[in-house]
């Protein structure tokens, strides 16, 4: 882990940072989406987990290289939680990669209504100096 920077995932400022999560965020800042893989059983997790859900062994981060996905489901949030109310409406989408791994993020460039099954492309965004995220583009 490099020297710790102040980075947050997404549109809020959750301070529950761990060294493992900090490494994830620093990779994300370099536009790399990291998944994790169990060092014992090989199970992959996206988003990553530090401990395997099956055998509680340590997982290691590795880059998730798939960039294209299909829209598995979506919601257009019109009435948002207080923290994101200035951003509404926004679209939250679950995208499914060909490997079957899924990722939940905003779609930020829709010009028409989303449709389940449509193509999504993984992208990255610096929301401000400290907030970074992965996102979907259509």
């Amino acid at each position: 882990m490099s020297e710790e920077k102040e980075l947050y995932l997404g549109y809020t400022t959750d301070k529950a940072i761990t060294p493992f999560f900090q490494d994830f965020l620093e990779a994300l800042e370099q536009e790399k989406l990291m998944k994790s893989k169990c060092t014992k059983c090989g199970t992959e997790y996206l988003p990553p987990r530090e401990y395997c859900q099956k055998d509680l062994s340590k997982c290691e981060l590795e880059e998730h290289t798939e960039k294209e996905a299909k829209l598995y489901s979506y919601v257009i949030v019109d009435f948002a939680p207080e923290t994101l109310s200035s951003k509404a409406p926004y679209v939250v989408a679950i995208g499914e990669f060909p490997s079957g791994l899924r990722l939940t993020a905003h779609i930020t460039n829709l010009m028409s209504m989303p449709e389940v099954g449509m193509n999504l492309k993984l992208a990255f965004d610096k929301i401000d100096a400290k907030k970074i995220t992965y996102k979907w583009l259509v």
Binding site: V77, T83, I94
Partner: peptide, 20 residues
């Protein structure tokens, strides 16, 4: 860590079920 930062409200979870 993974859902709250994206503003997924309680109705949003069920809207994800509804869309699907």
């Amino acid at each position: 860590r993974w859902e709250y930062p994206y503003g997924i409200s309680f109705p949003a979870f069920y809207a994800l079920m509804a869309s699907r």
